[in-house]
Design a binder for these strands. Structure first.
Lengths: 180, 180
DNA sequence: TTTAATCATGTAAACATTGACATGTTTTTA
DNA sequence: TAAAAACATGTCAATGTTTACATGATTAAA
């Protein structure tokens, strides 16, 4: 499946980057839907290099520090475009440890369950506020084919997802209070 | 982290089951938030057995077919309850291949992008309809501490999640048409 | 100016997950 | 009654992911 491969190719299509830059992207907006640590990124870059999909140039930062700035090669771009155009089936399961735990909620005392739900609610609300702040800085009407178009799609997606999560937590807390 | 361990303990807390039964649960409602194949389940059951958290009895089905019906031991129940009561931090990333691809949407032709979005929309709508049908069969006012309470929480959660996904896809398709 | 944060690149062991291989029984349906 | 679907249990190799180990340079802040 090699999803990380395409995440990296996609990022390099936007602009040349170092492995470190790629790791940073996974901590930003993109990190809402995919993530990888540098320990996974560097070996994958090595592999893509061997496969002839990418190349790199050495850049010197400061006095001596060497950076490998990676770039797409035509074969890599073709591979990326093919993947982007495939109509994949939806994955049936987006794993969620907290919701799994709630399936077994009957084994938690009422007061504690409310505490746990409130703790999640707080975190999700903070996340949502952060995403909404980002949306305010965003181009509200991105041009089709611009990278801002993709930025907008995923940001809106993340916001709608968090809103639904918050709504669920609020309903669940209410339900804890009113349930017999 | 061993989430599968707790998923299994939780299911066995509800009632004794075979490995096959557990696998089936991951294809039902619970499968919306956690999933494992039998190739992961059987070794995990073996391990839980060795750790003294569960035990089993042999049941004969038909003439000769042996079933291992697993059951929680007190140590397993304690372990489960401790896990259920821990206040874990939210996981920052619920991976989603399709949304990752949409981040790179600028590399897809408009007509094709609309096709891809519509394909996802169709699948998500079907899923949502299925979940809503299940909700109709569900106890609308589950008692606190009953297993129906957990069932209700996760089903509502799944519905809200799918609704948000559908909403996002619809907005994105509209955006494809109106964008410059 | 020194200290902390960030930049930068790698490897290795352990753990989690999937897909394929392997086998046989029981029940339902055509 | 034959075939298909579902029941039932396992292993193994490959792949994907995390955590820890390992090292050093550059920049911003105290």
């Amino acid at each position: 499946m090699r999803t990380l491969k395409y995440a990296i190719l996609g990022l390099l299509k936007r602009k040349p980057r170092t492995g470190y830059d790629i790791a940073k992207e996974f901590k930003a907006e993109l990190g809402n839907f995919w993530r990888a640590r540098h320990s996974q990124i560097y070996p994958e870059l090595k592999r893509l290099l061997e496969e002839g999909l990418i190349e790199y140039e050495i850049e010197i930062a400061g006095e001596t520090m060497e950076k490998k700035v990676y770039n797409l090669k035509p074969a890599g771009e073709k591979d990326l475009i093919d993947w982007l155009n495939t109509d994949e089936e939806m994955v049936p399961t987006a794993k969620d440890k907290f919701r799994l735990r709630m399936y077994f909620a009957s084994n938690i005392k009422r007061e504690r369950l409310i505490e746990l739900l409130n703790s999640q609610l707080k975190q999700r609300q903070d996340k949502l506020a952060m995403l909404e702040a980002k949306m305010d800085e965003q181009d509200r009407d991105p041009e089709f084919g611009s990278k801002e178009f993709g930025d907008f799609l995923v940001l809106e997606s993340a916001i709608l997802r968090e809103q639904a999560y918050v709504e669920w937590l609020e309903r669940s807390i209410r339900r804890c209070y009113i349930a017999k």
